[in-house]
Computed example of a mutant assay.
Amino acid sequence: MKVKLANQTIFILCWTFLIAVTIACNSQNQSTKENKTVHSKIDSTRLKYTKGVRSILEDSKGNSWFGSHNEGVCLLHNGELHYFTTENGLSNNQVRSIYEDKNGIIWFECGIGLSRYDGKEMTVYNERNYDSKNKWKLPDSALWFKGDETAGYNKLEGGPGVYQYDGKNLYYRSFPIKSKVGQENAYSISTPFVKSKNGSVWFGTYNALIGYDGKQFKVFNDDSLGLNGTTESLHIRSIMEDSKGNLWIGNNSGGSPIGGIGVLKYDGKEFIRFTKQHQLRKEDTKGNSLDRVFSIGEDSLGNIWFGTVESGVWRYDGHTIKNFTKKDGLDGDFVWIIYKSKTGELWFGGGPNGVYRFTGNSFERKY
């Protein structure tokens, strides 16, 4: 009898042990599975680009688009990334600007040509109208694109200008400017267009700032701004209108062997040499400087942010200017674009990869 009870006890203990081991293994497997799911979710929204994010758009359908410097464009839809290149509908793998028209079509201003996405497929857009180059109009919902060439203009365009899309047709509009021989790139579009609060539209070209109010043009170049054109000259890479109506203009090298003219501020009456005013040229700082600016943005508090080449990001609060670099969480010191999301958060896209957001003290990667 005792032997029988002992055997039963041993059986029960073994069975209990097997059950405990099974539960523990299942729990561990479930935990591992959950960890893999989390990591997969994180990895799935990490952009694979290695040459920099150059353009960003949140569309009306809740999607996010990320254009690269030379690796195509990526669509973030329902938590998944979908990549497009010249192999499936892009006219060129450099995506400089992304817009959405009034019909919900997404447009991609590429290094060469235009493409668009209708919600189903990406296609190259080849239709052009050159019959009314000088018939400028300023419809509220117009989109504006650079010329079809990477730099300069082709025979059909004939001279410096911009493409205007009115929701149905794409027209080439000529600027009231003639480029000099050897300087065909001087008036090529180099920034996304800016629609001002007063209804005017502004275009940044490499060597001039051009505004049109529906009646007349304003053209600002080295001569009108008092720049000598050699050690100091315009080389516009970004324009932005702030909440107060000021226009900020970011410049690259500007012809100087040691730096550039950096940021200009235009209040509608006069230009302020912002970088020079705050003594932030390389010749002043001997280190990180605000003289090569590729992107400008404004946050919900009214702070103005500048993305640079080589010197990371700078924030201006109206009084002081602070610099953020790799030590503050940025992957690199080159920031192509500063984009304000629909929630009011600023996204910083640059090189060599990724899109970052500011946490209040430092930067962390978002995509």
Rank of each mutant, 00 (worst) to 15 (best):
H319D: 04
G245C: 07
L5D: 13
I304P: 01
R173H: 13
G199I: 00
K366I: 04
R96S: 08
M240F: 09
K2R: 13
W305E: 07
N29G: 13
Y49A: 06
G111M: 09
G262I: 04
T50Q: 13
K244N: 12
G344S: 04
D101P: 12
A20V: 05
D242K: 01
T123V: 03
G199K: 05
T9R: 13
V53I: 13
R46K: 10
F220I: 00
E127P: 00
V181P: 04
W347N: 11
T230A: 06
G344N: 01
E100G: 14
I19A: 10
G211H: 03
G214W: 10
R237N: 06
G159Y: 11
S141Y: 01
D118A: 01
Y206H: 10
L290V: 07
L225P: 05
G167R: 15
N221V: 00
G62N: 15
R365S: 03
M1I: 03
G119L: 00
G62A: 13
P257M: 07
T86L: 13
N228F: 00
G312R: 02
N26C: 12
K33G: 12
L13G: 07
K195R: 12
D333E: 10
R237G: 05
F271H: 02
E345R: 02
K135E: 09
R54T: 09
L227H: 12
G79Q: 03
Y266I: 01
N323G: 05
W202R: 02
E270F: 05
Y367L: 14
G297E: 05
H235V: 04
Q183M: 11
T123P: 05
R273G: 10
S55E: 07
F84Q: 14
K326M: 04
S31N: 09
H77V: 05
S311C: 04
N7M: 09
N88H: 09
